[in-house]
Design a protein around this nucleic acid. Structure first.
Lengths: 139, 139
DNA sequence: AAAATATTCAACCGATCGGTTGACAATAAA
DNA sequence: TTTATTGTCAACCGATCGGTTGAATATTTT
């Protein structure tokens, strides 16, 4: 007993820091899954997968319902919402830049309109490329 | 060289899984800080704090500018935005419930209005308590 | 030049992590 | 009742983690 105070969000972020576990969550986003169903796509022993599931469970990210000899797992969104909200605190740091860019473009636009007053329809804001997002793939 | 493919977001979530590092990020949200300024509030050696900062740095969460013998650190919001967006995928799982609640309340409301047609101003949606958020404190 | 300051580096330590294997327990099917 | 099937548990392993200490490096101050 040496650990004094482990914030719950520690456990959540730690659980999310592993690709195998993130893929399991993605799978559970599709619906309920048994332990072996969750384990199947991952090339590791069932015991190893079972450990990952236990990590997710103790982080509160999933819950399991034991039905006979199978364990049905389902996603538990609460902790994900908490983590999401924690990150939201920093939202201004990445939206601020876009705001600045947007303002600059607006000013540019305004100048253009001032120069060319016959132009009636203002340009749409160009496809806001959120560069490094890198969604999709697997996890 | 045994590690094949460590997804960048692994490193980000891992960096966020430690309270000391999260507090450092919070501090950096206030503005630039030197290594010793970041270390000061935490009761550990400077070397230990330095390691934490290096973890944040290699996750891309901060950048440092070396000015003479001091290192100035600043927040780098990109990876936070990425993590935030990763979590956004699951947003429907925690908003769905609220949607259901909201719909139920609307129906209730509609019934009430149907019963009492003289009533003109509809009830505001009650203080949406997002229970387990637990903001503030330190990290 | 000498001393103080800011920070990293290297070696070490115990704890935890992610994986393995083999045994075990419980349920379902033959 | 035997035999599969589903899943956990316990012990072990090497790697990584979070911390320490002492020395090294680079810069600034005196």
């Amino acid at each position: 007993m040496v650990e004094l105070q482990t914030h719950p969000i520690d456990t959540v972020f730690h659980a999310l820091s592993d690709g195998t576990r993130r893929r399991m969550l993605r799978e559970l986003a599709q619906g309920e899954r048994t332990v072996s169903q969750l384990a199947e796509p991952h090339e590791m022993s069932l015991a190893a997968a079972s450990k990952h599931i236990k990590v997710l469970e103790s982080a509160g990210l999933i819950r399991r319902e034991i039905q006979g000899r199978t364990h049905l797992c389902r996603l538990e969104p609460g902790p994900l919402a908490t983590a999401h909200e924690w990150l939201t605190f920093y939202e201004r740091f990445w939206t601020d830049r876009l705001d600045i860019l947007e303002r600059l473009l607006r000013e540019e636009d305004a100048q253009k309109n001032a120069r060319d007053q016959t132009q009636k329809n203002p340009l749409k804001f160009p496809a806001s490329q959120k560069s490094e997002t890198e969604t999709g793939e697997d996890q």
